[in-house]
């Protein structure tokens, strides 16, 4: 039995960061991007991690997203200790457990929308027919199934971001990790996206949103603020508003 099977979502957090340090050596000076972070996120939460640039929010997002490992500390994701994993195991964790939504959409320009959405399934080794079916379902969910043949440069920014969301959802990940998802969108499409994320959360999906924008952060249920690599606030949106 592996850890994942032991994982009990009612009692154990989905994400557990224990005393995370991420230290970069910049020449002779030491930069502590994450300086002792402890954080627990339960399944079904909608958490916004807020901070200015240089606060360490990108670093923590990389660690939560299993794109990077901490210098010291432990990161338990869905019962698995991710903090000591090698690159291929991390790739598998990202593939199976996490759905990324990036600021610049990050769609592959030489593949059409359907192929882009199929990518996580491709690397999961899912058969072609099944892959296409699931990808079309995800596109339909975002209302852009009629654009499946289009290449990213033939789509508007909003449509591309929907494609990116469809790609994040297609593998039914335990965690949706959105990094400045509205950063490149106008206010109307930003609104639509945030409403969609809320809807996903209402359906039981766990969402972690990384942003520097307080108004975007307030769409979440829980807010964590970072400053100089440390957590300075962790609480509900109401408490956050009072505190400011």
């Amino acid at each position: 039995m592996n850890n994942e099977q032991l994982y009990d979502k009612t009692r154990v957090p989905l994400i557990q960061l224990i005393d995370i340090y991420k230290i970069y050596q910049m020449g002779s000076t030491e930069v502590r991007a994450n300086d002792g972070i402890d954080l627990k996120i339960m399944e079904g939460e909608f958490v916004a991690i807020v901070g200015k640039s240089g606060s360490g929010k990108s670093t923590i997002m990389n660690i939560i997203g299993a794109l990077d490992v901490p210098t010291t500390g432990q990161y338990i994701l869905k019962g698995q200790d991710v903090s000591k994993m090698k690159s291929d195991s991390l790739a598998e964790v990202r593939n199976k457990t996490i759905g990324f939504i990036f600021q610049q959409y990050n769609l592959l320009t030489k593949q059409n929308l359907l192929e882009n959405v199929e990518l996580p399934l491709l690397y999961a080794g899912i058969h072609k027919r099944e892959r296409k079916k699931l990808a079309m379902e995800a596109l339909a969910r975002l209302g852009i199934e009629d654009k499946w043949k289009n290449f990213p440069n033939q789509l508007s920014g909003g449509q591309q971001q929907r494609g990116a969301v469809a790609r994040a959802l297609v593998g039914k990940p335990s965690l949706i990790l959105a990094d400045e998802p509205t950063g490149a969108l106008d206010s109307r499409t930003s609104r639509e996206l945030l409403d969609f994320l809320k809807q996903l959360n209402d359906e039981g999906n766990t969402i972690v949103l990384i942003t520097h924008d307080r108004s975007v952060a307030e769409e979440a249920k829980r807010i964590v603020t970072l400053k100089d690599g440390k957590i300075t606030f962790d609480g509900s949106v109401n408490d956050y508003r009072k505190q400011v």
Binding site: G65, A91, R94, N95, N106, L108, L119, Y123, A124
Partner: peptide
């Protein structure tokens, strides 16, 4: 490089 990064973030392993 960007394409490789995207593929890796979506779960592509070294051998892929």
């Amino acid at each position: 490089t960007k394409e490789i990064g995207i593929r890796k973030s979506l779960g592509a392993k070294k051998r892929d």
